[in-house]
C-alpha cells in the first residue's frame, strides 16, 4: 500500500501538505495532507465537526491556514500556492470555484444574472474596465452575448433553462443547489469544491446531482472535490475518498477501501463497550500498517 501506486498522486490538480488550522486553542485541522487527482471526483468525508468545511475554507482562501501548503497545478503547468492568495484571487487566478453548505445565491437576481455575475472577470475586461462600456464602444455587446450563451449551456445542463428569467430566490431547494453548482462552473474552474451538494435533496434529486457531477467530470476540464454526508453519493461517484475525524486524516483510498476501513467504521458507527478492546487492538495494527506504508 505504498503511496506511489495511488493514481491521484501521479498528476494531482491539488496537493494539500501539512495543513493545520487553529482557532485559539482549538485545532480544527491537524497536519492534513492529501492530493486530489486531475479529472477525479475526490470526496472529503467525516463525522460532524471533523473540520471538513474548515479545509474547504482554507483551500478557497476564506481562512488563512496556521501552517501548511496548498498547491494548485493547472494543465498548462502553472502552479499556484493557495495559502498566499486572498479569497477572490483563488477563484480568479488559481481557478478554484466553490459552493456553500448553506446556499448563497443572489436571490433577488435572475438565474441568468447569477450566471453572468460568475463571469465577471472576463466581462470586466471586455467592457474596458467599465470605461469603454459606459460610452458604448468596444466589443462588450458581443462578449456579453457569448457570456449569455455560456450561461444558457449551463442552464441546459442543470435543466433550468425555462426558468432563466425568474429570480433565483423563487427556485425550489434542489434547483437552487444545482444553480449554485452551475454558477461556480461559469467561472471556468480547474477545481470545483462542493460543500455538501446533496444535503436536503430527495433521492431523485440526489440521483440527478450524481448525473450532473459525472457529466462535469466527463465533459469539462474540471476536477471535483466534495464534502458529503450522503454515502450513496460518495460511494457511487467518487474516485477517491479522504476521511477526517477531529481534524485528522484517518483514511485515504478508493471508496471500497475506505468503506471497509475499521477506523472509518468506528468513527461513523462507534463500537460497543465490550468490543472496545478488540477494536483498539485492530486499530493499533492498522496504525502500524499505515506508518509502515507512509514511511516508505
Amino acid at each position: 500500500m505504498s503511496t506511489i501506486s495511488k493514481p491521484w498522486d501521479k498528476d494531482p490538480v491539488l496537493t494539500v501538505e501539512h495543513l493545520t488550522m487553529r482557532f485559539g486553542g482549538l485545532v480544527a485541522v491537524n497536519d492534513l495532507s492529501f492530493s486530489a487527482g486531475r479529472g477525479d471526483i475526490t470526496a472529503l468525508i467525516g463525522p460532524n465537526g471533523a473540520g471538513k468545511t474548515t479545509v474547504f475554507n482554507c483551500i478557497t482562501g476564506f481562512y488563512k491556514p496556521t501552517t501548511g501548503m496548498m498547491t494548485m497545478r493547472h494543465k498548462d503547468g502553472a502552479t499556484h500556492l493557495l495559502e498566499r492568495m486572498p479569497d477572490f484571487v483563488v477563484s480568479k487566478k488559481a481557478k478554484v470555484a466553490r459552493t456553500f453548505q448553506n446556499i448563497r445565491l443572489f436571490s433577488g437576481m435572475t438565474l441568468l444574472e447569477n450566471l453572468l455575475v460568475a463571469q465577471h472577470n472576463p466581462l470586466m475586461i471586455a467592457s474596458g474596465m467599465t470605461f469603454l462600456g459606459v460610452l458604448g464602444i468596444g466589443g462588450y455587446k458581443a462578449k456579453e452575448r457569448q457570456a449569455i450563451e455560456k450561461a444558457k449551456y449551463w442552464l441546459d445542463k442543470i435543466k433550468l433553462t425555462d426558468r432563466a428569467d425568474d429570480p433565483a430566490g423563487d427556485l425550489p431547494y434542489g434547483a437552487q443547489r444545482r444553480l449554485e453548482i452551475a454558477r461556480a462552473m461559469c467561472t471556468g474552474p480547474a477545481l470545483l469544491c462542493l460543500d455538501e451538494p446533496a444535503a436536503g435533496l430527495n433521492p431523485r434529486e440526489s440521483a440527478e446531482l450524481n448525473e450532473l457531477l459525472l457529466g462535469i467530470r466527463r465533459d469539462e476540464d474540471t476536477s471535483i472535490l466534495l464534502i458529503e454526508h450522503d454515502m450513496s453519493v460518495v460511494m457511487e461517484i467518487s474516485d477517491h475518498v479522504v476521511v477526517l475525524e477531529y481534524g485528522t486524516k484517518i483514511s485515504d483510498g478508493t471508496p471500497a477501501e475506505t468503506k471497509n476501513d475499521p477506523r472509518v467504521i468506528a468513527a461513523y458507527l462507534g463500537v460497543d463497550d465490550e468490543e472496545v478492546d478488540k477494536v483498539e487492538h485492530e486499530l493499533d495494527e492498522v496504525q502500524a500498517h499505515h506508518t509502515q506504508g507512509s514511511g516508505q
Partner: peptide, 18 residues
C-alpha cells in the same frame, strides 16, 4: 451586476473571483 451581487451576498461574490 457586481454591485447588486455585492448587495445580495458578499461572500458569494468573493467566491466568484470578484
Amino acid at each position: 451586476r457586481a454591485w447588486e451581487a455585492l448587495r445580495e451576498d458578499e461572500v458569494a461574490c468573493r467566491s466568484l473571483g470578484i
